[in-house]
């Protein structure tokens, strides 16, 4: 295409107009974002307009937006367990073989051979998540959870031994484990509560934390296959305040919104058909 003089002028005109539009947008943005909005919003953050402009431009640090008075509270943690990379590494590296020997010597008298408890007084353990066993044993040891039989047992074990026992009970194959997916019983209302929750009471589904690999808190134990007596006792203990080693009230909160009948039926539901 041959260049025509009028075409060149046309392009110049367009170029000038485009540059003006870009410059206008830039100017508007600078005035609006760095001056008008900071000045108008300064009272919200309790600062004067000049400080607000300096913060918007980046000459002054934006944080803290308002200095906070020092916290007078003292920490009163309900559990000392921290899910740090170090803890996760101990759990991942734990050898289940010494764990098996320890379990045989220490745990099996109550929790049964291969973690299948013969009595309703003691929960099944095989198939349980390693993180859950580690958390509870640590809490028994630190006193965050108390049980006349478990507390002295846990106090005698080292951190590594706890992890080995956790690894042993977690290492069972699905077929051999006492805990694991079960065919639910035909209780439609409770099945809905366990799988869908109850938005009206802001109750999340049990399964959102307790199903394997759902991405909830690491310490959430496997429930399906557990003895209904044990599950019911724990729900009651959480609701009644006898047990409180659940970080940030997760279970105390949920259980306080359940009726006694629902606790019974949930325990029944999770025990399932064995």
């Amino acid at each position: 295409m041959t260049e025509q003089p009028t075409g060149g002028r046309e392009r110049d005109r367009w170029g000038f107009a485009a540059a003006m539009v870009v410059a206008g947008v830039l100017l508007f943005s600078v005035v609006m974002g760095l001056i008008v909005l900071p000045v108008l919003q300064a009272p919200n953050a309790g600062i004067d307009p000049w400080t607000a402009i300096c913060r918007a431009v980046g000459l002054k640090a934006g944080s803290p937006a308002q200095p906070q008075p020092p916290v007078s509270a003292t920490a009163a943690p309900v559990s000392q367990v921290r899910w740090t990379p170090a803890t996760l590494k101990i759990l991942a590296a734990a050898d289940p073989r010494p764990g098996a020997a320890l379990a045989q010597a220490v745990c099996s008298a109550c929790h049964g051979e291969a973690g299948l408890s013969p009595s309703t007084d003691f929960p099944h353990l095989s198939g349980q998540s390693g993180a859950a066993i580690y958390k509870q044993l640590s809490d028994f040891r630190s006193g965050a959870r108390f049980n006349a039989q478990m507390t002295p047992v846990a106090k005698k074990l080292t951190d590594e031994q706890l992890a080995q026992i956790a690894a042993y009970y977690g290492s069972f194959s699905r077929r051999a484990a006492a805990l694991g997916p079960r065919y639910g019983i035909g209780d439609a209302a409770i099945s809905r509560l366990a799988n869908r929750g109850d938005p009206a009471r802001a109750l999340p589904p049990c399964e959102s934390c307790h199903a394997r690999g759902v991405g909830g808190p690491p310490e959430a134990p496997v429930l399906s296959g557990q003895q209904r007596e044990y599950l019911y006792r724990q729900l009651r203990a959480f609701a009644g305040g006898q047990r409180g080693n659940d970080v940030y009230r997760r279970m105390r909160d949920v259980s306080s919104h359940l009726s006694d009948d629902e606790m019974h039926r949930l325990a029944e539901f999770y025990q399932g058909l064995s």
């Binding site: 916290v71 509270a73 003292t74 920490a75 009163a76 309900v78 970080v247 940030y248």
Partner: peptide, 14 residues
């Protein structure tokens, strides 16, 4: 975040 429940400010009672 790993120590939030052990911190003074965000401990349950506070």
């Amino acid at each position: 975040p790993q120590d939030l429940h052990l911190s003074a400010e965000f401990t349950e009672a506070n």
